[in-house]
Design a protein around this nucleic acid. Structure first.
Lengths: 168, 168
DNA sequence: CCCTCTATGTGATTTTATAACATTTCAGAG
DNA sequence: CTCTGAAATGTTATAAAATCACATAGAGGG
């Protein structure tokens, strides 16, 4: 696995944006959603979400665990996994199955079918929407009678920056 | 993880078919493709493909390893993983990321973008085609300049049989 | 035959994830 | 305020998935 520590050179998503504001805003939005729904955004959970927002890419559970330890939280796997379970279940974080890693959702709260573009070179992850019921898969599901409950849609390739760097 | 041993009650794919012939035919097709391309379908590799075709659903690497041991092959993880690497790389087998498991391809040889429907109840897996460049994900990739090399498309839900069994 | 490249066998280790149980925290009932 | 029960956290241990490293065996070309 390529290096996933250190936020110094963390690649931002494919388009530039005000990252500090993006972290603040999303965190505030999450607080609000939790308040509305009676969910408890406890310190560990909030910290995990904050870390994922800051990195702005997929982090493995054990990378998160290291960062949690640095922040003074418990350092055993269940600490990270339980916080991630909560965040995933409530739509604040998505799991990237291809990487066994986790990434903060860019529009938390709303239920949606995410799709991801994963750069194989710099590990950047961008979230897009998928429309699972349209297209070939939806047609196949309808024709066989399969009831789709959840979809995993992940594209692996080169992000714009890395494509350019490696001579297109 | 639910039981994955024993082929007695293994669910076939969503539509009935002549399973024995399907195993034979696909195995023969794989032999042919390997001959054409100068690939070596060695005993272990052939056996792994055969096991996956017989089960007709996703098997974890360690489940495959158990079956290999029963068949008299080496029983250490690399034996299974190396055979699977070969089969995946050459398009005879697909990995189901959601399950960390492997399933035989239904039309080996041809390069294609598979999509899967995974029953959460009986573990049956059906393969369909995806059209990654059409639809929302393709549009997102084009507009950001992301170069898609490979896609993972997996739908989780209830297969027709299980949907009916659990009262629709 | 010998050399080389590929494939296999095997032991050890790393990475990812969960089980089980004790302890703490906190909101609401009384 | 205090008790209480449920939810959350801490911690030890273990399971499951995947890879590393190195030795051995086989197939093919010269």
């Amino acid at each position: 696995m390529t290096s996933r520590e250190g936020s110094a050179s963390a690649p931002v998503a494919f388009s530039d944006h005000d990252h500090a504001a993006c972290v603040e805003d999303t965190l505030a939005a999450a607080e609000e959603v939790c308040a509305e729904r009676g969910l408890r955004l406890t310190p560990v959970r909030r910290k995990v979400l904050e870390l994922l927002l800051q990195e702005h890419r997929a982090l493995g559970a054990y990378a998160i665990l290291d960062l949690l330890r640095d922040a003074g939280f418990g350092s055993q796997p269940p600490v990270a996994y339980r916080a991630l379970d909560f965040l995933v279940k409530n739509g604040f974080v998505h799991k990237i199955e291809r990487l066994n890693a986790f990434v903060a959702c860019v529009h938390p709260g709303e239920t949606h079918s995410p799709a991801f573009m994963i750069c194989r070179k710099c590990d950047a992850v961008a979230e897009a929407q998928s429309t699972p019921l349209k297209g070939a898969l939806g047609a196949a599901a309808r024709s066989t009678g399969f009831q789709i409950e959840r979809t995993v849609v992940e594209a692996e390739g080169l992000c714009p920056d890395c494509a350019e760097a490696s001579g297109s």
